[in-house]
């Protein structure tokens, strides 16, 4: 992350100063920012700071970055969580349903719907939802966020439409994976064995199929959560939510490189953390991995 930013061309100092940049100004700012030092030194400094919880101070607003980020996480984390929850809650039953009605009308309907869901940009869904559900029908708040301290139910209300927009696309993708995982599992020999034991097709699917189908689906869930975190960046901007993603885009607009760096660091860490979690869950679900 750091290296991407450091190695790529573009001098933050001249960016910040923009049209007022003179060589002297730039040099002074570079010194203030500490970016006149060699890159490895900067890197060590940054890593050292990060490990002690000190992410430094924003170039532009002069604010401490660490508390800024924790504050924003209070919006982004619940948003991602609700979005994932909704997506999973819809996708798993829909995918299993489609697979158990393979090539029947129900399957086709689910497939067409998920194809449409995949093709809709999440932010467009968000725009349409605000326009119709919030503005025209006035059912839910259109945008903004009151803050958890203000009112918890009201805060949740403000997260509903953003979560739905996130979940729409993710849910559609997940549905397709669940369907194909279940279809694949239903062709396995052990399902036939289960049926030979006297289980009906449906019971064989529920008792023997789902846990096996869960193995690939969990992997997808991990990647989905990563995609969802990236999606929050866009969605927070649609709904004007004071989350990490909105801060990130604003930081880019203001050329606040250190803030960009720290924010992406947090998001990347979260993604890596999710992947680690997925590996752990894997071990729980699949006994073959435990003894290997």
């Amino acid at each position: 992350m750091f290296w991407v930013l450091a190695v790529l061309p573009g001098d933050p100092a001249s960016r910040i100063l923009g049209t007022q940049a003179t060589p002297e100004n730039v040099a002074r700012l570079r010194q203030d920012l500490g970016i006149d030092r060699s890159i490895p030194v900067q890197y060590l400094d940054w890593v050292g700071g990060t490990l002690t919880g000190d992410l430094g101070t924003s170039y532009v607003t002069q604010e401490e970055i660490a508390p800024l980020i924790t504050d924003r996480l209070k919006v982004t984390v619940p948003l991602a969580f609700f979005g994932m929850f909704l997506a999973t809650a819809v996708a798993i039953p829909a995918g299993v349903f489609a697979a158990s009605r393979h090539r029947e009308a129900g399957d086709t309907a689910v497939s067409v719907l998920s194809q449409v869901g995949i093709s809709i940009p999440a932010f467009w869904a968000g725009l349409l939802l605000t326009t119709y559900v919030a503005v025209k029908w006035g059912i839910l708040p259109a945008n903004g966020f009151p803050g958890w301290g203000e009112s918890i139910p009201n805060s949740i209300k403000h997260l509903i439409l953003p979560s739905v927009s996130l979940a729409l696309v993710q849910g559609a993708i997940l549905t397709r994976y669940v369907r194909s995982a279940v279809l694949q599992v239903m062709r396995e020999d052990y399902i036939r064995t289960a049926r030979a034991k006297g289980l009906t097709r449906q019971r064989a699917l529920w008792r023997h199929g789902l846990r096996n189908a869960a193995i690939p689906v969990i992997t997808i869930l991990g990647l989905q959560l990563a995609a969802l975190l990236a999606g929050t960046v866009v969605i927070e901007n649609v709904f004007v939510l004071p989350g990490l993603g909105r801060m990130l885009v604003q930081a880019i607009e203001r050329r606040d490189l250190l803030l960009v760096q720290s924010t992406t660091l947090i998001i990347t860490t979260a993604i890596l953390g999710v992947n680690l979690l997925v590996d752990l869950i894997y071990n729980l679900v699949d006994p073959r991995l435990r003894t290997r």
Binding site: G10, I252, T264
Partner: peptide, 19 residues
Amino acid sequence: MYAFPAILLAILLSAARGP
């Protein structure tokens, strides 16, 4: 890289190179 969403990479790149 696989786990790293395209949008984030693009955001980083825009930050470094300008949008």
